[in-house]
Amino acid sequence: MTDDEKAAALRPPADPLGDQFWQSLKEGRLTFQRCKHCGNAWLPVRSECPRCLEADWAWENASGAARLISWVVYHRAFHEAFADRVPYTVAVVELTEGPRMTSNIIGAGDPEALKIDQALRLVIEPDFGLFVPRFTPV
């Protein structure tokens, strides 16, 4: 699989809001949505606030501070694009501002030594033709 083929296979589905999310990352900012009506903050992107259902929201920049909710370590690739990357870590992280997202943990040494709720910080890496928001232990 060439790098271009991998990028094509893994590209998030075309979506106006999703495209804005990924464009911000290209500019070095991880963004989330905050409802102007009730103040709720969320990811992943959606067009209505899942708390008050209003569609009146704005983008905000995340500070990059987060904590580790949970993680798994893939020792087997479920997709060809990751065949040469095992073992790799996929995590659920919670941004200090509240929203939770799926991401990767990098630079952690032995991933089995990670701890739930430990502090993380954002690292934006160019990969698969995108700028990918990943996290590393503080």
């Binding site: 296979a9 893994l10 590209r11 998030p12 589905p13 979506d15 999703g18 992943p44 909710i69 949970s70 993680w71 798994v72 893939y74 690739a77 479920f78 997709h79 694009a81 990751f82 990357r85 790799y88 996929v90 659920v92 799926t102 991401s103 990767n104 701890k115 739930i116 709720d117 990969d127 698969f128 995108l130 990918v132």
Partner: peptide
């Protein structure tokens, strides 16, 4: 979706994520 870029594939991984939190 839309988390393929993180390598987030397959049903087992979702349950493994819950299991790890339970262990912690």
């Amino acid at each position: 979706d839309p988390n393929a870029v993180f390598g987030w594939f397959g049903v087992p991984a979702g349950y493994a994520m819950v299991a790890r939190r339970h262990m912690g």
